[in-house]
């Protein structure tokens, strides 16, 4: 059984592409996904939940197959949580203008995404990254 790519589907893909690009521009924030045909996020992160962290970047690892940004977020009780936010492959991200210096240690950042499943871990994926005031964080 072959799922062919007919002309109707080609036109549909063009429309989808245009909508995708428009959506990215309108959002104005950087939405990065760790999925990117490398692995499903479901086994690692819970799509039914959303967490938010505001804090200081301690490290930005720009690599393949996953980049990670590490954020120390101060909680309401004054404790600090060290979050690890999974991002895409650096090869893919670089085509969207990202470099190893796009985020630097010391930057203030806000991340909203899906939390990791394993108890006692503070991972996040599929996150939206902005500045603490909500303004876009762009490459």
């Amino acid at each position: 059984m072959d799922r062919g790519l007919g002309m109707g589907e080609v036109k549909e893909d063009v429309v989808k592409t245009l909508l995708w690009i428009s959506g990215m521009v309108l959002v104005g924030a950087v939405l990065v996904t760790s999925v990117g045909a490398h692995h499903a996020s479901g086994p690692f992160y819970d799509p039914e939940k959303s967490v938010e962290a505001v804090g200081t970047v301690t490290k930005f690892v720009f690599r393949n197959p996953h980049s990670f940004v590490y954020v120390d977020a101060v909680n309401a009780d004054g404790s600090t949580t060290a979050w690890e936010i999974e991002m895409g492959a650096s090869v893919s991200m670089s085509r969207r203008g990202w470099t190893p210096d796009t985020i630097k240690a010391g930057d203030q950042i806000k991340v909203v995404g899906q939390p990791s499943r394993a108890p006692g871990t503070f991972g996040m994926c599929c996150a939206e990254l902005t500045r603490p005031d909500g303004s876009p964080l762009r490459p």
Binding site: S34, H39, P43, F44, Y45, V61, R63, N64, P65, H66, S67, F68, E84, E86, A89, V91, S94, S116, R117, A118, P119, T121, G123
Partner: peptide, 19 residues
């Protein structure tokens, strides 16, 4: 084409978040 240079640590990094 860019070099991919799979990073062994980062490749396995997500596993800690898996149950």
């Amino acid at each position: 084409l860019q070099a991919y240079d799979c990073d062994p640590f980062e490749a396995g990094h997500p596993r800690k978040f898996l149950v």
